[in-house]
Write a protein that binds this DNA or RNA. Structure first.
Lengths: 161, 161
DNA sequence: TATTGTTATACTCTATAACTATA
DNA sequence: TATAGTTATAGAGTATAACAATA
């Protein structure tokens, strides 16, 4: 994806009638749309995360799945899907992929024979440990990009959401 | 998507000792990841936007394209793509779609024969007017969901980003 | 009847590469 | 050589519907 230069506050042109506060391209109502800026941030976050975890080839969705399985060993696919707002059907393929890589397992659930009890393999736990370290680097980069204060305020606001 | 109540640092509840404040499923490190919550919010925003603009069948990306073309008549596809962080290749298909619906036009650019000068048709302007009204409803819904104060703080923080 | 996991389909989006016509 | 627009392709992600096994 293309680099996103906001131009909005970029001091690129030397002489611009109304100073360089005027954007090169007018965003019009988008300038007052929270949804627009949330998407821009989300795109940045996603790309930085993917780049940093590329050595172990773990996507944001895969990371969240590994984290939640590890913290809730034996939970079902339906519970996992609901928790992470992933479609049940999509989760099936995601788990197939992780299982093929030898990171997760579907064990028979005691009691309800419809369910699978999910858990990580040893390899899965090892990958998760590396993933968590890299994800912390990513989070640190995000904190630096936003400034520590803004990061903190944002995190607290969004946690309540 | 599932409703997400975070409960973690909310000063909203008066007394919440150790009751059902504990989530059914443990999110582990995800609880401290800004990126995770940004995605949750982004998903909510996207779905609400799509639902509200479904009567005129305009997606968030299409909306942003119409807005920026209208506010910058004659700009090129490359400029538009860079501004909105859309891939050049993706923008081609997006504009093909809007053009087939009779909402946008690619006119010859004076001077550089490689470029197209983009502009809205009359129908495009009419649709954009309706889209802006519906998008304002969406924004109002978002403001209510977050509370007016949180909405304002978030908007100001993210605008600087 | 409802739920769990699964398969299938269609559509959108992202990420690339390569091509053409201009500059 | 570089840029603007285009085509093509592969892989994710989203949204549905339907099915078998089980509750």
């Amino acid at each position: 994806m293309a680099e996103q230069k906001r131009a909005r506050t970029l001091p690129l042109r030397k002489t611009q009638p109304r100073q360089r506060s005027r954007p090169v391209v007018d965003l019009n109502v988008l300038n007052d749309r929270l949804g627009y800026f949330v998407r821009r941030l989300q795109v940045w976050v996603f790309q930085d995360f993917v780049r940093r975890l590329s050595p172990i080839d773990i996507s944001p969705a895969q990371f969240s799945v590994l984290v939640v399985i590890d913290a809730n060993r034996g939970l079902s696919q339906a519970e996992l899907a609901t928790t992470l707002a992933i479609e049940r059907a999509r989760l099936v393929r995601l788990l197939n992929h992780l299982e093929r890589r030898g990171l997760t397992q579907r064990l028979p659930s005691s009691g309800d024979r419809r369910r699978h009890a999910l858990q990580l393999t040893r390899d899965g736990q090892a990958i998760l440990a590396r993933a968590k370290a890299l994800a912390e680097d990513h989070e640190a980069a995000l904190r630096q990009k936003l400034s520590a204060e803004r990061y903190q305020v944002l995190l607290e606001l969004l946690q309540e959401f």
